[in-house]
Simulated assay, not measured.
Amino acid sequence: MHKPIIAVPMGDPAGVGPEIIIKALQDRKVQMAARVLIVGDRAVLEQAMTFCKSRLAIEVVEKAAQGCYAEGTITLLDMANVDVKTLRIGQVQAQAGKAAFAYLEKATQLALAQEVDAIATTPINKESLRAADVPHIGHTEMLEELTATKNPLTMFQVFDLRVFFLTRHVSLRRACDLVTEASVYEFIQRCVKALEVLGVQNPSIAVAGLNPHSGEHGLFGDEEVNEIEPAVKRAQADGVRVVGPVPADSVFHFGLKGRYDAVLSLYHDQGHIATKMVDFERTISLTNNMPFLRTSVDHGTAFDIAGSGSVSEVSMVEAIYLAALYAPSFNKDAEEKRG
C-alpha cells in the first residue's frame, strides 16, 4: 500500500514538539498510515529521546525520497540550527523562535515542490517568534505568506465531527457584527468546496445559531432572522445541502452523530469548546485553501512540562493520521486544477 509522505516541522525546540514527535513515531497508527519526514535538528531530537527514554535510530536525508522510513527510525532532514548547550528547555528564547520558523519554511518548500504530500505541524511559541523578530504570530499567518495564500480556511475535526469557523481571533462583540448574510453565504460555499477537496462529495452542512435557541424567531436577538436564515435559503437555492440556524446547544451533538458532514460555527469559542469537550487531545486543525494540506495539533508548547517526557502524543498521532488520510484526495484535486 502506498503511504503518503508527511513532513513534520519540529516546532519550538524548547517546547514539547520534539517529544511528541518521538512518541508518535512509535505509534502503530502512524506507522501504518504514513511515511514521516521530520524537519528539525538532530541534537535536539537526541536530547528529547533521553527525556522520553527512547532509543530510536536517526536516518539523516537530504531529500524526502531518500528515506527508508523504517520502523524504529526517525527519518530526518537535519537543519542543524540549534545549540543545545545554550537551549533552555521550557523558556522563551530567540534561538528557538528562529529555528521553529526555519523548520516550517523548509517543510513548506518541500510541500510546494511536491516532495511531500502534506505537513503536520507541532507547537510553536508566539513570544519566542517575537524574540526572533519573526513578523507573524502563528502558523496560519506564516503559511499565508510562505504560500502567497489569501484567507486560508480552518477546519477542526474530532472523530466524525468537522467544524468550520465563520470568525476566529476577534472579540465576541466584533464576531457578532461579522455575522451577516453575505459572510454566512460566502462561508457556506467555502465549506462545501473544502469538504469536496477532502473527498466528501455533496456534503451536508448545518449552520449554528448565534443566540440562545437561535433567537426564538427574534424574541432575543434578530441575527438568525435577518442574516443567517436568508443566507441559508440563498445557498439552498444554489443546490447546497445546508440547514440552519440550528441551536448551538444541539447542532454539534447532531454533527458528531453523523447527521451533518460539518457544522459552521459562528465564533471561535462556540466551535472550540464543542470539539474539545468531545476529546481535547484528538481535536485536530486542518488548513484548507492552500497549495497543500496542513494539519496541526491543537495544543501549545507546554513549557511547564517540556523536558519531562510526560507529554501525551495522542494529538500528534491524530494530526499525522488525518494528514495521511486526506492528502490523496486533496492532492488529486490540486492536480486536476493545475490541469
Rank of each mutant, 00 (worst) to 15 (best):
M1F: 09
H2F: 15
I6T: 06
A7N: 02
A7P: 06
M10Y: 01
D12W: 02
P18G: 11
E19K: 03
I21R: 04
K23S: 03
K23C: 07
A24I: 03
D27S: 05
D27Q: 13
A33V: 01
A34R: 01
R35T: 02
L37W: 08
R42M: 10
V44S: 04
V44N: 05
Q47N: 06
Q47V: 06
S54D: 06
E62K: 07
E62Q: 12
A64F: 12
L76E: 03
L77D: 00
V82Q: 11
V84W: 06
V84Y: 08
T86D: 13
L87R: 12
I89F: 11
G90H: 02
G90C: 08
Q93I: 02
A96N: 05
G97D: 13
A99V: 08
A100Q: 09
F101K: 12
F101L: 12
L104M: 15
Q109R: 09
A111Q: 04
L112Q: 13
Q114D: 12
V116Q: 05
K126Q: 10
K126F: 05
S128F: 06
D133S: 12
V134I: 15
E141C: 00
L143P: 00
L153Y: 07
L153G: 04
L153W: 05
M155E: 11
V158D: 00
F159V: 02
F159Q: 04
D160I: 04
R162N: 12
F164P: 15
F164W: 09
V170E: 10
L172S: 02
V179E: 14
A182I: 07
A182T: 08
F187M: 10
F187W: 05
I188T: 10
Q189I: 00
Q189C: 13
R190Y: 05
C191N: 15
K193G: 03
G199D: 00
V200Q: 08
P203C: 06
I205G: 14
A206S: 14
L210A: 08
P212F: 12
H213L: 06
S214V: 02
G215I: 04
E216D: 15
H217V: 09
F220K: 11
D222W: 11
E224Q: 13
E224H: 13
P230L: 14
V232A: 07
A235M: 05
V240S: 08
V246P: 14
A248D: 13
H253K: 15
F254M: 15
G255D: 09
G258I: 09
S265D: 10
L266F: 11
T275W: 03
T275D: 05
T275Q: 07
K276Q: 08
D279T: 02
R282M: 07
R282F: 00
I284F: 07
N288P: 01
N289F: 04
R294N: 04
S296A: 15
G300Y: 02
I305F: 10
I305A: 14
G307M: 08
G307A: 13
S312H: 14
S315H: 01
S315L: 00
M316V: 03
Y321D: 04
Y321E: 05
A324W: 00
A324N: 03
L325A: 04
Y326K: 12
Y326F: 15
S329R: 06
N331Q: 11
K332Y: 08
K332T: 06
